[in-house]
Amino acid sequence: MDKIKLATVWLAGCSGCHMSFLDLDEWLIELVQWAEIVYSPVGSDRKDYPENVDVCLVEGGVANEDNKTMILNVRQRSKILISFGDCAVTANVPGMRNMLEGSEPVLRRGYSELADNTAQVPDEPGIVPRLLDQVLPVHQVVAVDIFMPGCPPSADRIKATIEPLFRGDRPQMVGRDMIKFG
């Protein structure tokens, strides 16, 4: 049987979910018997998101133009998209800037008002991606197949979510162990 093509993607999040993924420790060795890591900031050197991905874990909310391009790409090229962690599911901490209503006040606050010296709002089209007005949870931009809350989701929760997929089953996302936020 062919191995499952597994990808992990890092959008607007702190990378904690990926750290938790690495906390799978020795199970990672078992994992690669089932799955081929085709794209991941912690498991692959590949720069472009490949075609025909079976399962993709998406960490982070959709906060800038790059995130948005990426998630549309991911959705198109992946069979099962998993919102991985609270930032992907709720926008979480990155979403706290949404109360300021718009990207402009956020940048002004961050780079001008709070600057000690050389106050300047970064503006390098093509290098620094433009912020979206609101940080959105992934499912508000594209369809999501499985939601795995947690900040971060524990390694056990990650395992319990993806392991059934390798067998062609769906994980049971119920109960404190699986869906507690935070």
């Binding site: 919102s83 599911v89 709720t90 926008a91 979403g95 949404n98 109360m99 609101q134 949870p137 499912h139 508000q140 999501v144 939601f147 795995m148 809350p149 996302m173 119920v174 109960g175 404190r176 699986m178 869906i179 507690k180 936020f181």
Partner: peptide, 16 residues
């Protein structure tokens, strides 16, 4: 949220 099985909210966040 755990009791009612809420793994995400289908309503857009209002961010008041």
């Amino acid at each position: 949220a755990i009791e009612v099985g809420m793994d995400h909210t289908r309503f857009p966040y209002q961010f008041p």
